[in-house]
């Protein structure tokens, strides 16, 4: 592995921020009203990433399973909250948050543990230098799948209420009556990762691979890592979205095969 690793200085980042100032200036000039949001988002990026940088540095020094677990739980909790915040229709009694968080926990834990114990095999396997970034990448993408899938299912079941209840009234089981919409939600949930895998290398050079190459890693090695990550993300997104969608469709119907849209807030 060659290591022509060019250190970035704060001055380099300031140079890059000129681009943001340019975009902000354009927004003001053209009265787009984006400058405030742009500024806040840029500030959040700097603050959040700097903080996580410090946290990761500390975490990597300790290599404690408990601190690693705590960080992982925090990340999954935030991911669940974010997935819930993206729902147009929320369930009463915290069910949206519960379903999103548990699906993300299940998918994130299974896939990250699998990768750590079979493919990457660091010593110890929970070494936070590997576990935390992996989990972050997996969660960030799974979150998308879970949020999109749940949102789509809620919207479709509400829109197709009359058609679904027509089937129920004819004696169809709830699973049959909602199956087309579960399928549609699943497709919506995993579409972004399928697109990402299809476009990888041809249209886009994935961010992680770019980062590794910039950091001096041999491109063929970076590619192997990228493929691994893509597979992990695809697996986790599918597992997470499927769990969340099935749990949600279960909650939006009941064991007397009724559609329970009254369970929305």
């Amino acid at each position: 592995m060659s290591s022509v690793y060019i250190q970035l200085s704060y001055f380099d980042l300031m140079m890059a921020s000129i681009l943001l100032l340019l975009a902000g200036g354009l927004s003001i000039g053209l009265k787009l009203g984006l400058e405030k949001m742009l500024g806040i988002a840029a500030l959040r990026t700097v603050v959040q990433l700097s903080l996580i940088g410090l946290v990761l540095k500390l975490l990597f020094q300790t290599t404690s399973p408990w601190w690693t677990l705590l960080a992982a739980v925090f990340m999954m909790g935030f991911a669940g909250r974010e997935a819930m915040a993206r729902q147009t229709l929320k369930l009463r009694g915290g069910w949206s948050l519960g379903i999103a968080t548990l699906s993300l926990m299940l998918a994130g834990t299974v896939v990250t543990t699998l990768a750590l114990t079979t493919a990457i095999r660091p010593e110890p396997w929970y070494d936070p230098r590997f576990a935390i970034p992996l989990l972050g990448m997996v969660l960030g993408n799974t979150l998308n799948g879970v949020a999109v899938g749940m949102d789509r299912l809620s919207a479709t079941l509400k829109r197709e209420k009359i058609a679904i209840e027509a089937r129920l009234a004819l004696g169809h089981a709830r699973r049959d009556a909602v199956r087309p919409y579960v399928r549609e939600a699943m497709r919506a949930g995993v579409m972004h990762i399928i697109n990402a895998m299809s476009a990888a290398g041809l249209i886009s050079i994935p961010g992680m691979m770019t980062g590794q190459i910039l950091a001096g890693v041999d491109p063929t090695q970076a590619v192997k890592y990228q493929i691994l990550i893509m597979f992990l993300i695809a697996g986790s997104t599918s597992l997470g979205a499927l769990t969340a969608i099935l749990a949600l469709s279960n909650r939006l119907s009941d064991d007397r095969d009724r559609l329970r849209l009254d369970r929305f807030r």
């Binding site: 197709e160 058609a163 209840e165 129920l168 009234a169 004819l170 004696g171």
Partner: peptide
């Protein structure tokens, strides 16, 4: 139950 006690709503749904 619904196969024996069947309800036909005023507005029909189609799937």
């Amino acid at each position: 139950w619904r196969k024996q006690v069947m309800y036909v709503p005023a507005y029909s749904g189609w799937w």
